[in-house]
Nucleic acid binder design. Structure first.
Length: 851
RNA sequence: GGGCGUUUAGCUCAGUUGGGAGAGCGCCAGCUCGACAAGCUGGAGGUCACUGGUUCGAGCCCAGUAACGCCCACCA
């Protein structure tokens, strides 16, 4: 070791992540370790596609957790020598990005309409150039070993080409079509959104009952509605065909109050006889159910609410009012006409836009849709047959249930930022052309073409992420080397939105599933159990955690708190990671500054050596298996407890005298153990392990590409484990006894051993001297007979003795009771009964000895 | 309206095939022992939500109840 290194190790008693992390990360990037050549086959390579974060986004705890999981597996496989690619990129995030830039424009007193489409899109690109790399930089802070040289963006030229290819092929297959259909209109983003972007919330509204007079009769039909303003667009009243009360009215007409339109009374199964009066107003233009019923019965579709949320000309005297204002006015007018029968509070669930937070306005609108049923079929089969494995198991069923009920996907958005739909219209001959590249003129009549104004849903482009990032539709080396990817970890909230769609498009376009494994991880909640959310102010910033504790600490903490169930964010776990990094540093200092100049190798000379090597190899096997099965919490927990408890608390303390003596064997063994611990922990805590490794005498190159440890079965030694663990147990009992009889911590107590000689370290660590004769023992702990001395307080010793007797009596009683139960002896397995007998005997023997 | 999940120490969570309840943090007591006080040693602390059942034996299996949470769903 160089003098400078020695000086640094000697003087640095605390690990300082802030000093280390940026430097180490730069070394990794400079070494090109994250940038694989596109060689080999997917089966032997290892690849992952990051869930592309929104270009507007900032790293949140979900990214940090998911990133920690992916990086752990990516790094482990890279260390195993696999050609490893972690594809990174960002998502153009149509609505979110457009909203951010529009907000900026508004601050300048401008609007996107003033700017015009082209200038606005230009403006968004400028914004992207300036702020779009923020989240990528934040992933670097986390230590994510993505291939930053292959960074992709969903609006890159090549990516756009892939999107257009997909659109065109789906169109040619007849899956994509344009239709006037009921959509979820988001007044906030002025666009249609898909069903998956709608969330239902409980809302307290008023339920109004309105009398609709039956034409040519004194009778009225009373309908109930929470949206009286939509009655202006009613085109029927429906009753259940089995409802005797109204059987005679079906086929007749009502006269729509305020409007005077004749509307038919129809019969439809959908109507619930029990609800209200059993009569349902039908508004095909503004209610999804009514829309279905309307289409079934061929009803007229009238729209009275426009895309701007205001009443249209169709609303007559209410035109120009907002829907909310119109509701007040319509109710007032109905009351004046004596048509309002009742108004009562009513709690029901209402759709809101997940994007803008505004209440969805169901509208009929001309949109592009994609049929999903045919695409879903093979995507269902691959999951049924476990060609794509979804874990934990319950999510497989959730996926399948949803896929089996899949409905057409509204893929058009009334935005400017995004993939403009590759459709051109010829006004002259009404031709519609779908093409991957803009055609010059209309192929039929040579007329001028205009491109579709709408853009595609952002998720349409994310759906092809795993292969579009690799260069599809071209047959690229990347695609051949890294598709299908190895696995996907994800939050469940995008299981349908993203995961399902990737599976469908992967099979359809890339000819194979996009990944073999999907691991659905838990959601980290705020400390108080609420959702972490920006709007609630409950978010915890991962960057702040990294600033304070280091990336390793956060990564460890997140993996430690992760689970299959949702968990609250635990500062303690991050602190634990922080402490572990420091402990690694300090234990390494002890080893590196004191070992003799020898090759790292397992060179056991005593039972303790064989024990720690055995524990080490077991830990490697177990932690590896845990990581491979996505059981991150147990993986890091086991690594932690092996390192801290077994290696530091016991082995290092046991080995210190030999270490200080400069013994070669213990030096070699310790260097070996350290090397393997660093390798094992590197996927979880890459920075501190890499930093320590640079001081290790075996260092020949960066740990990031050092061989990942493989458990050496030959070093497993059960006998050594039993012996040393017995010694540890005895040491703990001796220490506890000392503490209870209140002897000074530093004093060495006299004792002798009767029976099996415990390992050497027991006396030393428990501060006893064993090889003494003389006098009657005052206490007995296992084979150890404590001798009287002036350090011992006779009363305390006696009190302790009595307490022990008490414990033993109750143990003996318990054992006797259990073994006295004939049914237990008869029915329990023989080894369980034997074990009980053994215990009882031991307790009896000890009690007798103490009597 | 369906489906799923959760309920274990003061807090956050583990508990593998049913065989004497665990971790981390916190708490109490004691330690400047030649890596680390972000440390070391010892200790206290639990009717495993509730009720019934199966079993020699249940935190774990079965039935039900309650509370909380999530997802899906076209009852106005």
């Amino acid at each position: 070791m160089s003098a400078a290194d020695r000086e640094k190790l000697e003087s640095t008693t605390r690990y300082d992540p802030a000093e280390v992390e940026a430097r180490i990360f730069a070394e990794w990037v400079e070494g090109g370790y994250f940038h694989p050549e596109a060689e080999g086959a997917p089966e032997e390579n290892f690849s992952v596609a990051i869930p592309p974060p929104n270009v507007t986004g900032a790293l949140h705890m979900g990214h940090a957790l998911n990133g920690s999981m992916q990086d752990a597996l990516v790094r482990m496989n890279r260390m195993r020598g696999k050609n490893t690619l972690w594809i990174l990129g960002t998502d153009h995030a149509g609505i979110a990005t457009q909203a951010v830039v529009e907000k900026g424009l508004r601050a300048e007193g401008k609007s996107r309409q003033e700017l015009g489409r082209e200038a606005f899109v230009e403006r968004v690109w400028e914004w992207k150039a300036e702020y779009g790399s923020r989240i990528v930089e934040q992933y670097k802070r986390l230590g994510a070993s993505c291939d930053y040289e292959r960074e992709r963006f969903t609006l890159d030229q090549d990516y756009v080409r892939a999107v257009y290819r997909v659109f065109k092929q789906l169109y040619d297959k007849g899956y994509i079509y344009r239709d006037n259909y009921m959509v979820n209109w988001d007044p906030g983003s002025h666009s249609a959104i898909s069903d998956l972007e709608v969330e239902n919330r409980e809302v307290e509204d008023a339920l109004f009952s309105i009398d609709y007079p039956v034409e040519g009769s004194d009778r009225v039909l009373t309908v109930a509605t929470v949206r009286p303003e939509t009655m202006l667009a009613d085109t029927a009243v429906a009753v259940n065909p089995g409802d005797g009360r109204y059987a005679d009215l079906v086929g007749q007409h009502c006269v729509l109050p305020l409007v005077g339109r004749r509307i038919p009374i129809i019969a439809d199964e959908h109507v619930d006889i029990e609800f209200g009066t059993g009569a349902l107003k039908i508004t095909p233009g503004h209610d999804p159910n009514d829309f279905e019923i309307g289409r079934k019965h061929g009803l007229e579709e009238i729209g009275v609410i426009g895309p701007d949320g205001r009443m249209t000309e169709e609303a007559g005297r209410f035109a120009g009012l907002t829907a909310a204002e119109a509701q007040v006015a319509v109710v007032e007018a109905l009351r004046e006409e004596g048509r309002l029968r009742a108004e009562e509070p009513y709690v029901h669930s209402v759709p809101f836009s997940h994007r803008s937070g505004e209440r969805i306005e169901p509208l009929i609108s001309l949109q592009w849709f994609c049929r999903m049923d045919e695409l879903a079929k093979p995507a269902i089969e691959v999951v049924e047959r476990d060609q794509v494995r979804i874990a934990p198991g319950q999510w497989k069923r959730v996926y399948l249930d949803w896929m089996r009920e899949i409905r057409p996907w509204c893929v058009s958005r009334q935005l400017w930022w995004g993939h403009r739909i590759p459709v051109w219209y010829c006004d002259a001959c009404e031709e519609t052309i779908v093409a991957e590249q803009a055609p010059e003129r209309c192929g039929s009549c040579g007329g001028e073409l205009r491109q579709e104004e709408d853009v595609l849903d952002t998720w349409f482009s994310s759906a092809i992420w795993p292969f579009a990032t690799l260069g599809w539709p071209d047959d690229t080396p990347e695609l051949r080397a890294f598709y299908p990817t190895s696995f996907l970890t994800t939050a469940r909230e995008i299981l349908f939105l993203w995961v399902a769609r990737m599976i469908m498009t992967g099979i359809e376009f890339a000819g194979d599933v996009p990944f073999r494994d999907v691991y659905v991880h838990s959601v980290i909640q705020a400390r108080d159990g609420r959702r972490m959310s920006k709007s609630l102010g409950t978010g915890i910033d991962p960057l702040e955690e990294i600033d304070v504790h280091g990336a390793d600490a956060l990564r460890f903490g997140l993996l430690a708190m992760s689970s299959t169930q949702d968990v609250r964010f635990s500062d303690a776990k991050v602190q634990q990671g922080n402490d572990l990094a420091n402990k690694l540093w300090n234990a390494s200092r002890l080893i590196l500054l004191n070992t003799a100049a020898v090759e790292a190798a397992p060179r056991p000379t005593c039972v303790e050596d064989r024990w720690i090597l055995s524990r080490l190899e077991r830990t490697i096997a177990s932690v590896t298996a845990r990581l491979e099965s996505y059981d991150f919490a147990h993986a890091v927990g086991e690594a932690y407890s092996f390192f801290w408890r077994d290696l530091c608390d016991w082995y290092l303390e046991i080995a210190k005298p030999r270490l200080y003596d400069g013994e070669e064997e213990v030096s070699a063994t310790l260097l070996y153990a350290l090397e393997r611990v660093l390798g094992l922990l590197h996927p979880v805590m890459p920075f501190v392990t890499e930093e320590i490794w640079s001081f290790h005498p075996s260092y020949r190159g960066h740990l990031v590409v050092h061989a990942f440890p493989v458990a050496d079965e030959a070093l497993i030694d059960e006998a050594a484990e039993a012996d040393v663990e017995g010694g540890i147990g005895l040491t703990q009992r001796l220490r506890a006894w000392r503490d209870m009889v209140d002897v000074p911590a530093a004093s060495v107590l006299a004792a002798r051993v009767e029976g099996v000689e415990p390992p050497e370290f027991v006396a030393r660590l428990a501060r006893f001297e064993f090889e003494l004769d003389g006098g009657d023992p005052v206490a007995s702990i296992g084979p150890v007979r404590v001798l009287a001395s002036e350090q011992l307080d006779a009363e305390a010793v006696a009190a302790r003795l009595e307490k022990r007797r008490e414990e033993l009596r109750s143990e003996v009683e318990r054992g006797e009771r259990k073994l006295g139960n004939e049914k237990f002896v008869a029915k329990a397995p023989a080894e369980v009964v034997e074990e009980e007998r053994g215990k009882l005997e031991r307790y009896r023997a000890e009690l007798e000895e103490l009597a």
